[in-house]
Design a binder for these strands. Structure first.
Lengths: 213, 213
DNA sequence: ATTGTCATATGACAGTGTGTCATATCGTTA
DNA sequence: TAACGATATGACACACTGTCATATGACAAT
C-alpha cells in the first residue's frame, strides 16, 4: 500500500501517477512493467516514486484494491436489495465484476493483471487485511434461514473465499478464451459460474435425478 | 517446457540442472530467483541454460509438471482402489498432495512456488495441455451412479478445476499459517478441504437441519 | 527577518541480472 | 579427411532497479 507521503500529495499528482501505472499495467503484465516507463508517463522523478510506493507491485496492489473496494460496496447493496438472499445476490455480483473487467477502459489492465493479482506479498497482504476488516459486518445482511450450514465466522470466511475462487476460475476462462476457441466467452463465463454456484447450492451428489444441463 | 536439446542431454547433466533449479526455487520465489545462481550451482555455462529452457519460469514449470504427473498417477490409482467413488478418492488425493508438499525435501520449494505457480504463460500452457491430454480417459474410472449431475466432458473439466481450486485454496491456508496464527496448519488444511468438499457434495442450501459443525 | 528542523524531492549512479551472439567444439556422415 | 548440422560457451550490450547524497520547501521559534 502507498506510503503516507503519497496520500499527502495533491490530488492531481496522485491521479497522474495512478493513471500512468494503470496505463503501464494495461500495456504489459506487472512482471514486465517498468517503473522507468511509469515515471516517464507521469512526469515524476525516479526517486519520488520510491517515496510513494515500495515497488511496482505495491502500486498495482493499490489499483486493484480500489476496484475491490467498489465491488465490496456493490456486494452489500445487492444483498440488501435481495433481502439477504445469498444465492440471488452472488450471480449479480459476478456479472457486475465481469462487466467491469470487460469494460473497454479496463479490459487490457485486467487481462494483464488477472492471472497474477494474488501473487506479490503486498497484494496478498492487502486483500487479506481488507477481508479481515470487513467480513465481520456483512454476515448479518445474509438471510441464513435457507442455509443448511451454520454461518459461523469461520464458515463465512471459507464460503467467501470459495465464492471468490469460483469467480476467479470463471473469469480466467473468460480471459483465456483465445486459447480455447469459444464463441462467446462472456456468456460462457457466466454460464460457467452459474453451474459452479448451482453445485455449491444443491450439491453434486443427490438421490433424485439429474438437475443440470 | 524444456527444449528437445535438454531432453537429449545425458541424464546426469539433466539432473544437475534440475537439482540446481530446485535448490534456487527453494531459496526464493521464482521472481527473485536468478539464473546466474542456477548455472553456478549446476556448473553449466550461461549460454547452455538458454539452449535448454526459455527462461527460469520454463524450468520452474517443468519441475512442477513432474510433481503434477505423479499426482495424476496417484489419482487414477486411488479411484481404482475405491471402485470409482469420487468423494472417497478425492480427500485421499488431497492428503497425498499435501503430504508431498510438506515433506522436508519439498517444503521450501513449494512454499516459494505455490502462490505463483499458475502465473507464467509457460506454466499455464503446460498445465492446460496436461489437462487436455488426460482428462479424457479417467472419466470412465468414476462411478457416476451416485452423482446428481451428468458427467459430460465439459462438466468433468469444470469439476476437475473446481476440485483443484479447492485444494489450492486449502493448501494456501497451510502455507500462510504464519500470517494467521494457527495451531496445527496441517490439520486445519485437511479440515478446511473436507468442509469445502462436503459443501460441494451435499450443497449448502438444504431443507433439513444443519449438517456440519 | 533569520535560523533551525523536519519532511519531501530529485536524479546520478552503482549494482545486478538478463538474453544474445559470434565463435568454438563435437559428432556423424560422405 | 572434409564438411555439415547441432550443440556449447562466455563475453557483452542493454535494461532496469533501488539507493543515497544533496537540494528544496514549509513551518515554527526566536
Amino acid at each position: 500500500m502507498p506510503k503516507q507521503t503519497f496520500l499527502n500529495l495533491p490530488q492531481e499528482k496522485q491521479r497522474r501517477l495512478l493513471k500512468a501505472g494503470f496505463e503501464e499495467f494495461s500495456r504489459v503484465p506487472a512482471i514486465d512493467a517498468s517503473i522507468s516507463n511509469i515515471i516517464k508517463l507521469a512526469e515524476i522523478p525516479r526517486g519520488s516514486f520510491y517515496q510513494y510506493f515500495e515497488d511496482k507491485y505495491d502500486l498495482q496492489a493499490y489499483l486493484v484494491m480500489q476496484f475491490s473496494q467498489e465491488w465490496y460496496r456493490t456486494w452489500r447493496q445487492l444483498l440488501q436489495e435481495h433481502q439477504g438472499d445469498f444465492f440471488a445476490a452472488v450471480p449479480l455480483l459476478f456479472k457486475d465484476i465481469l462487466d467491469m473487467m470487460r469494460d473497454e477502459k479496463n479490459h487490457a489492465f485486467w487481462k494483464n493483471t488477472f492471472f497474477q493479482f494474488r501473487n506479490s506479498k503486498e497484494m496478498r497482504k492487502a486483500l487479506h487485511q481488507q477481508r479481515r476488516s470487513k467480513h465481520g459486518d456483512d454476515r448479518e445482511l445474509i438471510n441464513q434461514q435457507k442455509l443448511r450450514i451454520k454461518l459461523t465466522e469461520h464458515n463465512y470466511v471459507l464460503l467467501n473465499r470459495q465464492i471468490t475462487t469460483m469467480m476467479i476460475q470463471s473469469i480466467s476462462m473468460y480471459f483465456m478464451a483465445d486459447r480455447f476457441n469459444v464463441d462467446d466467452p462472456y456468456q460462457e463465463a457466466i454460464q460457467n459460474f452459474n453451474t459452479l454456484l448451482n453445485w455449491l447450492q444443491f450439491g453434486i451428489q443427490g438421490k433424485g435425478g439429474n438437475a443440470d444441463d
